[in-house]
Design a binder for these strands. Structure first.
Lengths: 331, 331
DNA sequence: TTGTAGGCGTTATCAT
DNA sequence: ATGATAACGCCTACAA
């Protein structure tokens, strides 16, 4: 039923090889047949069968994007960056999430490669282990990780240490010296970097580091923030500020609970988040936070992977982007 | 380089046809060769080339999801519903957005169909016109629209009229009789339905409808809400409540600006939104709103499209889901 | 139960 | 400049 090269060829009185060359703008075709063929193709509303083409060329013109969880605003923003840049690149985006899946990220990647489904993969994840990364390197399909620094693979990430330093510097500059720090257990390496930045800032300002001010939550949602507030309240010495590298949603939960308990933000308790999610502008007081350039990471990732696929780039590329400290009302 | 059926066949001392049958669990294969073949396949870490398989079977096991804009929380939540259900269905999801694209939704759909890229399409959009919908019907690929009622195509949508009625009923029940209504120009049919629901509620309670209380914003972002507040303030008679079928983000913008101008919400001005986006719980006071079952719509859509693809369903299916009125603090 | 053979719609390499 | 022809890797009658 669908129209194929052959159909066009028959009508044009040529062979399908010729039509193929016309469709693909190959040289050495007479203007006359080129026009004739194009006209018929348009009339018949022809579109090449990408599956057949893929089999012949061994290229799918598709890139896979593996995300841990579509519920995360962070992830969605990166995805947005990928999609909006991809506009001019014209690869089809296959979306995979790994939350609650039987396959790990690397298994999924391996399968996608072997199935020849995709020409390249972007992995948005901060938590891949080094072991997993090896599988990515072993397959012949180009891949790229977003939001996590790694030495064995192409990646784009932010300078988390500096981001956290900026935050702590700011709080210390405001006169705070007892600054609680709320990390998340699910964030892997980037979290370690942020914690290191926090400590580095304290050290640089001669503010004593206190292990008892370090709190960890399991996830990175608003509920975690609400729940952790009791712990913050119970802290000795009592903090006058909280830095929340666990992310904006946790920080927002803390703000909400603080207000409910009649603590004024930022007067009684200053709060600084991490990420600059859209919700940071919604909460009141609006959230002072460390912005991660999410769209830019997506943009960089898709450009780089396409350059790799098309052979314009080779060798390991690791791109570090700066964070930006966004001052609003909460600190 | 990649391992193919032939490679396995050679090692197993059979032909690739046999291996194919084993891989696809066809009957009439001796237990012995089945085991032998499977063992080798596992050893070689074989995965079928989905492109080649697609060419042979004329099926891609992929479904396309067309979204207007990944920046919309609403859209992302529906997408989440699709993805999480798809887990057990095992179709690959191809993601397309149409914002700033040269192709319209229907053109894109037509191309995808003709290219044989996908077995089915889910369109998340409230604004498709009836003309566009015709193209969807004409192609032979099953399709499904989310968030918009239509008679010529499969769809899943909510009862917007009832949703808006619930909201207005509630406000009227609270003693309000001058209720402004903020619509959005970009929402198409669903917006008309909501407006109708608002009017129906007024009528049912003998509250006079006033055209001058109807306001329209262009988009559905927080900025629109902030900007429209001046208009609300200037309204005569002065409203004591605002219903915002334009969506939660607009409602949130209104709340923010109202607070900035020292109007208490809900005491001076009660506000009811539409959608129940995650941000509705972030804003303070938290937003009373009409919840759309976003995950459920995604879930229904993917199930239905797969049923269609696999021939378990036929005939037009239109599914109406109820909204749920969520009472929080803003009204 | 397994092998043979042809086809799916393109692209690519030769000839011509 | 165009036509034959052989892949690409898999599936599926049909034959054996």
């Amino acid at each position: 039923m669908p129209v194929t090269l052959k159909d066009i060829a028959k009508r044009a009185g040529v062979t399908s090889a010729t039509v193929s060359m016309v469709i693909n703008n190959k040289p050495n075709i007479s203007e006359e047949t080129r026009k004739r063929v194009m006209k018929i193709a348009k009339e018949l509303n022809y579109y090449p069968n990408v599956i057949a083409r893929g089999l012949a060329t061994r290229r799918s013109n598709a890139i896979g994007v593996i995300v841990p969880n579509l519920a995360s605003s962070f992830v969605v923003r990166v995805l947005q960056g990928i999609k909006s840049t991809n506009r001019d690149l014209d690869y089809t985006v296959l979306l995979f999430d790994t939350v609650g899946q039987r396959e790990s990220e690397s298994q999924l990647f391996q399968r996608l490669s072997r199935e020849r489904r995709i020409d390249g993969v972007i992995l948005i994840s901060s938590t891949v282990t080094d072991d997993e990364l090896n599988i990515f390197r072993d397959e012949s399909v180009p891949s790229m990780v977003v939001a996590r620094k790694c030495t064995t693979l192409d990646c784009v990430y932010v300078n988390n240490e500096q981001g956290a330093r900026d935050a702590a510097d700011y709080l210390i500059g405001k006169g705070h010296s007892v600054i609680a720090c709320v990390g998340s257990a699910k964030l892997g390496l980037p979290m370690e970097e942020r914690l290191a930045g926090y400590r580095a800032s304290l050290a640089a300002h001669g503010v004593p580091f206190r292990q008892e001010l370090m709190i960890t939550v399991d996830d990175d949602g608003m509920a975690d923030g609400v729940a952790v507030f009791e712990k913050i309240r119970a802290l000795q010495p009592a903090p006058t500020a909280v830095f929340v590298p666990a992310g904006d949603m946790v920080a927002i939960g803390i703000i909400k609970e603080a207000k409910k308990q009649e603590r004024r933000v930022p007067q009684d308790l200053a709060i600084v988040g991490y990420d600059d999610l859209p919700a940071a502008e919604v909460i009141e007081p609006s959230l002072t936070t460390v912005r991660q350039p999410k769209l830019e990471m997506g943009d960089y990732a898709i450009n780089m992977i396409v350059d790799k696929i098309e052979g314009r780039e080779s060798g390991l590329k690791q791109k570090e982007l700066p964070t930006k400290f966004i001052i609003r009302e909460s600190a």
